[in-house]
């Protein structure tokens, strides 16, 4: 049984439907990539899973259908959504950002989660009291991932973690995601336009086109797929 499965998932903004029946699944312990051009529906798919937008269709999480999906409900079930633009609470300090990740946890538990996050991001310790809005883009992305870790998630949804970052930082971030996946057993669904880096990390990948799944398969297989290569890898 997969950890997450969507069946005929639709998502809309008012009258405009952005995704039209998306079926994806994330196996336990897997890294799954959600690829596609700008506007293909990656963000909307993630938002539909957590109920940030209006949806129809089924989302099975841990084998249970999530009815009445809300973002706060999803968070409480262990789904950490790192939104597009990183969701930095920019006027608050690094520490405040992190502790809000563990909002639903006890103080003791929060401390344990913090110690875990610092294993991956040791620089957080000395920057604890800095205002989060003054961090660099890469640091803010790492803070967002660290904050997601504070939630002790079973599943992390990441929306374009590479956006606007230098290639070296992007590589660093994907290395950390792989480590978090392996060592903390967090399953990951990552939306990316940067197909090369995402496919290299992913066990399985879906390619979205205009709100539908166009192709899907194991990461290495898609990397060899002509259509995917031409449209998304550029060679």
């Amino acid at each position: 049984m997969p950890l997450l499965e969507t069946q005929a998932l639709h998502g809309r903004y008012g009258q405009i439907e952005a995704i039209h029946g998306v079926d994806i699944s994330v196996e336990r312990g897997a890294i799954v990539a959600l690829l596609g051009a700008n506007g293909s529906g990656k963000t909307s798919t993630l938002r539909a899973i957590t109920g940030t937008i209006k949806t129809e269709g089924t989302v099975l999480y841990d084998g249970v259908a999530l009815h009445q999906r809300t973002p706060e409900g999803a968070a409480r079930l262990g789904i950490a959504h790192v939104p597009e633009g990183r969701g930095t609470l920019s006027a608050l300090t690094v520490w405040e950002n992190l502790s809000l990740g563990a909002f639903t946890k006890s103080r003791k538990h929060m401390q344990e989660r913090y110690e875990r996050a610092v294993v991956y991001f040791p620089w957080l310790e000395e920057r604890k009291h800095q205002t989060a809005g003054t961090l660099s883009g890469g640091e803010q992305q790492m803070l967002a991932i660290a904050r997601a870790l504070m939630m002790e998630p079973k599943l992390m949804l990441l929306d374009e973690p590479s956006l606007g970052l230098a290639p070296m930082i992007v590589r660093q971030i994907f290395d950390l995601l792989r480590k978090i996946n392996k060592e903390d057993g967090v399953s990951i669904l990552v939306a990316e336009q940067n197909a090369t880096i995402a496919l290299a990390a992913a066990d399985h990948a879906y390619v979205l086109e205009a709100g539908h799944v166009a192709v899907h398969g194991p990461g290495d297989e898609l990397m060899r797929d002509d259509r995917v290569r031409r449209s998304y890898l550029g060679y």
Partner: peptide
């Protein structure tokens, strides 16, 4: 200050 982001954090 950040209603949308806060909801995502539970």
């Amino acid at each position: 200050l950040y209603p949308e982001q806060s909801r995502v954090l539970g």
